[in-house]
Simulated assay, not measured.
Amino acid sequence: MQQTRLDTERIRAARRSIDPLFLDSPLYRCETLDPELGCAVSVKLETANPVRSFKGRGTEVIASELAASGSRAAVCASAGNLGQALAWSGRGRGLDVTVVASRFAPVAKLDRIRAFGARLELVDGDFDQARDRASEIARRDGIRLVEDSLDLETCEGAATIGLELVESLAKTPFDTVLIALGGGAMATGIGHVMKDLAPGVEVICVQPLGAPAMTYSFHKRQVVTTDSTDTIADGVAGRRPIPAVLDDLLLVADDAVLVREESIIAGMRLLLGHAGLVVEPSAALGVAAILEDRDRFAGRNVVTVVCGSNVDVDAYHRWVG
Results as ranks from 00 to 15, higher is better:
A211V: 10
T172E: 08
R260S: 06
M194Q: 07
A266D: 14
L271A: 06
V203Y: 00
E261I: 14
Q207W: 13
A237Q: 10
G238Q: 14
A213S: 13
D254R: 02
V279A: 11
G238S: 13
E202D: 04
V236Q: 03
L272A: 12
S228D: 07
S263T: 11
I204G: 05
L246R: 08
A298Q: 14
A275D: 02
R269S: 15
D254S: 12
A284F: 09
A180R: 04
P243I: 07
L271T: 04
T225I: 06
L272P: 08
A283W: 05
A266N: 14
P243R: 06
V193Q: 02
D295W: 08
G235E: 13
V303K: 05
D293M: 00
G273N: 09
V203Q: 00
T229P: 05
A298Y: 05
F297C: 02
D248R: 09
A185S: 13
T304M: 00
T304Q: 01
I242A: 13
G210Q: 11
N301V: 00
D196S: 10
A284I: 09
I242F: 11
V303D: 03
H219C: 08
T215H: 06
L258D: 13
T172C: 08
E261V: 12
R239Q: 15
V206I: 10
Y216G: 11
I265L: 06
D248Y: 08
M194N: 04
T172K: 06
S282I: 05
D293Q: 09
L277S: 11
I265M: 12
A211P: 03
D234Y: 13
V305F: 00
V259P: 04
M194S: 02
S263L: 13
L258A: 14
E262T: 11
A288M: 01
G238R: 11
Q207Y: 12
A187I: 07
I264H: 09
I190Y: 01
M214F: 06
V302L: 03
L181Y: 02
V177A: 01
H274Y: 15
H192S: 15
V223W: 03
A211E: 10
T215R: 01
G191W: 02
G299P: 13
A298G: 03
L285Y: 05
L181R: 03
L246E: 05
H274C: 07
K220C: 05
L291R: 04
T215I: 07
D247T: 13
A275L: 02
A185G: 09
F174R: 07
G276I: 01
H219E: 06
L181C: 11
D227Y: 08
F174M: 04
T304Y: 00
D234R: 10
